[in-house]
Design a protein around this nucleic acid. Structure first.
Lengths: 351, 351
DNA sequence: GCTAAAAGGACAAACGTTTGCATAAACCTA
DNA sequence: TAGGTTTATGCAAACGTTTGTCCTTTTAGC
C-alpha cells in the first residue's frame, strides 16, 4: 500500500538507460532524443513518479522557497497581504513558508533562523511592534539573501521595503474633512514608535496647518487603536469644553468605537461629528452609517513585495541596491464623513 | 560580503576532526565528549554556521514541512484557522507551507503536486467549493502521507477530518430564537452541495420541527451568502403576505445585509425582526445592534487539524485509521436576537 | 598486568537530484 | 574515405547532511 515512491534511478533501471538521461528527459533538455524523452515521461506517469524537490534544491542550491514573517496572520490586513504574496509567488513557481512573530522579538529571531535553515531564497517581513533594531536580520543580508520589509519597516535603514504612503493617506483624509466643513478635527493616534502611526499623525498635522487650522494637543488622543480605545477617546473628546466636530482615527477599530459612543449619546454622524478611519476594514462598509476609510492596498502590497524580491534575486550576482516602493493609498469616502453632496457618494459594495 | 556559508565539513577541517563527529556534536549525541562538543558549538557560533535543512531532510527522509491548502487565505475564517495551524506546527518544529486553491479544482490539483514534490510530511486541506471527488488526493494517501480535511470536507469518505458541528450550531441558534418568542423563522441558506451549509439548514429545520413549528419553503432563501444576497433575501421576505419575525442566516455577511434593509425601512431589530448569523465575524460585535452569531472555533480547528496530523504521523508505520474531530460551536448571544432579559447579555468586547 | 568493556571518534555510504565532461554513433562535407 | 561536426547518451562527482560500522584509546575489573 505505502508504495515507496519511485526515484529517477528506478526509472533509469527499468528503461535500461542512465539516470542522467532520465533527469535530462524529465527536464526536457534539448540534447535528449524525442523518442527517449517520450519513453521516460510515459513511464514516469505510469509509476506515478514524483520528483524530489529537496534533492534538486540541494544540488542546484535553489530551493524555490520564499519565507514570510508577519506579526500574526489572522485579521484583515495581513491575511490580505498574504493573499497577494502567495498569489504571485506561486505564479512564478515559488512555495511560500509562513511564520508568525506574535509581536515578539524573540520569536522573530527564532523564525529568521528557521527560515534560513530551510534555505529560503528570500525573506519578506513585517516587523513586530517592539522591534527596534536590525541585529537579527543581519544574518539574512550577510548571506546575500534578498530581504524585503513591508508595512512595518525599520526607518533610516538601507533595506528594501514596500509601504503605503501613510502620510498622504492621512493628509487626504483630513483635507477631505476640512472640505466637508469641519473646523475642529481630532485625531486618534497610534503608538508613535511605529512608522505607520507616526506618519499618519504627521499627515494629520500638516493637513491642518496647510489649511490654516491649528494643531491642538488635547485633540490628539494617543492609544492602542482598539475599539475600546475609541470609546474612551471619544468620551474624553466629548468632555472637552469645546469638543471637536470630526475625528480622524488612525485605525478603523477605534473609529467604530467612537461611533458607538456617539450613537449611544444620540449624536449624529456625520453632522454632529464626522468620522474617518484607516485601513478599510471589512466592517467599515457594514456599519450604519458606513465609515469613510483609507484603503491600504493590502494585496498590492503583497504583490509588490514579491516582485521586489524577484528583482533582487535577478541581480543577485551583482550588488543589489535596496529599493523602496511606496504605494498610493485611496480614500474611500462614505457616509460617516459626508456632510455635503450626499448624491455624490460612490456606493462601495462589500465583498 | 556574500560570505558563502560554512558547512559541517568546513567546521571539521578547522577543528581537525571528522564530519561525523561534528554532526553528532551539533546534534548533542551522547557519544561525543563534552570537550569536543563545546569546541564544535563554539566554532559554529563564531563562523555563524547555519545547518542546511534541505540536506538533513534529504538524508533523513523527514522534511519537517507541513502543507496547508485553503480556498483563499484572506478573510476572517481561514486566516484564523491558519493562525491556529502555524502556532502549533511551529511549536513542534514544523514549518508550514501554504497554498491557495482559489476555489478552483485545477489549482487544487496543481497545489497537491507541488506540496508532494516539496516532500511535505502531511497535508491539511479545506476544499474548493466545487470539488466533488477525491481523485487528486489519492496520490497523497497512496504515498502514506497524513491527509486531514478541515471545515470543507468530502462526505462519506474515509479520510481524517476536523469540522465543527454546523448542525448543532444551527439548531442552537434557531432554538434560541424560538425561546425568544419568535414564531416564524426564516433561513438564509448557502450552496447545498457544501457540507457546512447543508448541515446548517438541517439544523434549522430540525429545530423548528422539534418545537412544533413547520418548515416553510418560502421562508428559505438559498443564495451565495454575500451582503447583497442578504439585502435581496430580506426584501423578498418582507414582501411576503406574512413576513417572518426572525431570520437565521447561515452567514454573517447576509445577516448584516438583512439588517441594512431593516434599518432603511425603520424596522427594529430584534423586536420587529430578530437576526442570528453564523461565523462570528469581527464586524458582528461592531454593528448596532450587535449581531448574535455562532462562533466556529477557527483557531481551535487549526490546532486540532495539526494535532490530528501529528497523531497520524506517530503511528505511520502501522496502518492509521482515519479519525474525525467534531468541534462544538458556541452561540454568542447579542442584541440582534435578544427580545427578553436584556440585562443578561454578556458583553462581548471586540478584539 | 591482563582482558573486557566502554568511550570517543573516523570512514564511507547513503538520500535523489543535477551537470560538466567524456564518449560513441551517426551524419556531413569535400 | 578521412576528418569534422552533430546528436544522443553515459560516467561520476557534487550538494550537505546523517548514521551504521569499525577502529583506537582509555577506563575499569579482577
Amino acid at each position: 500500500m505505502a508504495a515507496n515512491r519511485a526515484s529517477i534511478a528506478d526509472l533509469a533501471k527499468k528503461l535500461n538507460i542512465s539516470v542522467s538521461t532520465v533527469s535530462r528527459a524529465l527536464n526536457n533538455h534539448t540534447s535528449i532524443s524525442e523518442s527517449t524523452r517520450k519513453k521516460v515521461w510515459q513511464l514516469a506517469k505510469e509509476v506515478n513518479y514524483q520528483p524530489n524537490h529537496l534533492a534538486a534544491a540541494l544540488r542546484k542550491g535553489r530551493s524555490n522557497l520564499l519565507g514570510v514573517m508577519v506579526p500574526h496572520i489572522e485579521g484583515h490586513f495581513f491575511s490580505s497581504v498574504m493573499h497577494g504574496i502567495e498569489t504571485v509567488a506561486s505564479k512564478v513557481g515559488f512555495n511560500v513558508m509562513i511564520c508568525q512573530s506574535n509581536e515578539n522579538v524573540a520569536s522573530e529571531k527564532k523564525n529568521i533562523e528557521s527560515l534560513l535553515n530551510a534555505q529560503v531564497e528570500g525573506v519578506l517581513v513585517s516587523l513586530a511592534r517592539n522591534t527596534h533594531d536590525f541585529k537579527h536580520f543581519e544574518k539574512v543580508s550577510k548571506r546575500a539573501i534578498p530581504l524585503v520589509f513591508f508595512d512595518r519597516v525599520l526607518e533610516g535603514l538601507n533595506v528594501s521595503s514596500v509601504i503605503i504612503d501613510d502620510y498622504l493617506g492621512a493628509y487626504q483624509a483630513v483635507t477631505h474633512l476640512i472640505e466637508q466643513g469641519c473646523q475642529r478635527i481630532a485625531h486618534f493616534a497610534g503608538p508613535q514608535h511605529l512608522n505607520i502611526y507616526k506618519n499618519r499623525q504627521r499627515g494629520y498635522q500638516d493637513a491642518l496647518q496647510a489649511h490654516g487650522l491649528s494643531v491642538e494637543d488635547d485633540l490628539i488622543f494617543t492609544c492602542d487603536m482598539k475599539t475600546e480605545d475609541g470609546v474612551e477617546g471619544m468620551e474624553k473628546l466629548l468632555a472637552l469644553a469645546v469638543p471637536p466636530d470630526a475625528v480622524f482615527s488612525a485605525s478603523d477599530f477605534s473609529a467604530v468605537g467612537a461611533m458607538q459612543v456617539l450613537k449611544a449619546r444620540q449624536l449624529r454622524v456625520p453632522h454632529d461629528m464626522a468620522l474617518v478611519g484607516f485601513s478599510n476594514e471589512t466592517f467599515t462598509s457594514l456599519t450604519e452609517p458606513r465609515i469613510t476609510s483609507v484603503d491600504q492596498r493590502c494585496e498590492q502590497m503583497g504583490q509588490s513585495a514579491v516582485k521586489l524580491f524577484l528583482e533582487m534575486l535577478e541581480e543577485k550576482s551583482g550588488e543589489f541596491s535596496p529599493r523602496r516602493i511606496v504605494l498610493q493609498p485611496e480614500l474611500l469616502i462614505r457616509e460617516s464623513s459626508l456632510r455635503l453632496q450626499p448624491h455624490l457618494i460612490p456606493h462601495v459594495t462589500a465583498r
